[in-house]
């Protein structure tokens, strides 16, 4: 049965789009049939991060308004044939997202894919509430920083109140994805520790994604980080998170960069790329 996942955070810049692309690609690399859906109408970026910005013809809003059929708007990934993107509109605003329209698109996607990953815009307004509305599972992307944790707490409240699941009296399963984490700073007492964030938000941990230069490199290249730097710590962390999302029990380790020898240090970049 298809799973609708919302990737949300409240705060901007914490890594929702990066995580959507990386988790979507990781699931697809594991053989699942995946679509990533951009809900950031007016400020779309998932197309860019996925490297599909030049192939957008129709978008989510066109499908909602009946101006295009769903298969016309879906963009197949060039690297993974079982990964697709449904882009957001760049010219409309979030008011164009209607609950009925979104519901129709989501139920059609459910018939075509195993995983529907909805990339929520920042904020708590219409775009964010529409992205979470029909979700089966929520991934709350959080940085170990006060404003991000506060906003995540607010989003958790909305997930328990403003989703269809919540309105039916069901519980929305929520997972914490701690991103841009710097274990060294946390150890020095300069950054909230994983346990602190978990205790405050009290939702289970899906994964810890270390702060990494590979993320910027991936977005520069227009490739999910699990494809552009598959051996990096950040890619391995996303792959593990995607497996936990599928229900696998994997012990949580904080992925670290593999140590390079002298030769690796001298020629590392070219040798690994």
């Amino acid at each position: 049965m298809a799973q609708v996942v919302v990737v949300t955070s409240g705060k901007g810049g914490v890594g929702k789009t990066t995580s959507t692309a990386a988790l979507g690609a990781a699931l697809a690399q594991g053989g699942e049939n995946v679509v990533v859906v951009d809900f950031d109408v007016g400020l779309r970026n998932l197309d860019l991060v996925m490297g599909a910005e030049r192939r957008v013809v129709f978008d989510l809003i066109n499908v909602i308004h009946g101006e295009a059929k769903l298969p016309q708007a879906l963009i197949r990934d060039k690297r993974l044939e079982n990964l697709a993107l449904l882009p957001a509109s760049q010219t409309r605003d979030k008011e164009a997202l209607t609950p009925e329209g979104v519901e129709r698109v989501i139920s059609e996607l459910r018939t075509k894919f195993d995983w529907i990953i909805c990339d929520s815009p920042a904020g708590i307004e219409r775009g964010a509430t529409m992205a979470m509305r029909y979700a089966d599972i929520a991934i709350v992307v959080t940085n170990a920083e006060v404003s991000s944790v506060r906003d995540s707490d607010r989003i958790i409240g909305l997930l328990d109140a403003k989703t269809e699941k919540a309105e039916r009296g069901q519980k929305m399963p929520k997972h914490l994805l701690l991103t841009r984490y710097d274990p060294a700073r946390a150890a020095r007492g300069e950054m909230l520790k994983t346990e602190d964030v978990l205790e405050i938000l009290s939702i289970p941990l899906l994964g810890i994604i270390p702060e990494s230069q590979d993320v910027l490199k991936a977005s520069n290249l227009g490739s999910p980080v699990t494809l552009s730097s598959p051996n990096s710590a950040v890619a391995r962390a996303y792959v593990e998170a995607s497996r936990r999302l599928k229900g696998e029990q994997i012990k949580l380790t904080l992925p670290v960069e593999a140590r390079r020898g002298l030769i690796g240090k001298l020629f590392g970049r070219r040798a690994i790329a």
């Binding site: 920083e145 006060v146 944790v149 506060r150 946390a186 007492g189 300069e190 520790k193 602190d196 405050i200």
Partner: peptide, 15 residues
């Protein structure tokens, strides 16, 4: 003084 415990305490009270 480490700043992370301060962050933790402020968040707990606020939330």
């Amino acid at each position: 003084r480490d700043s992370a415990p301060v962050a933790r305490e402020r968040l707990q009270v606020l939330l």
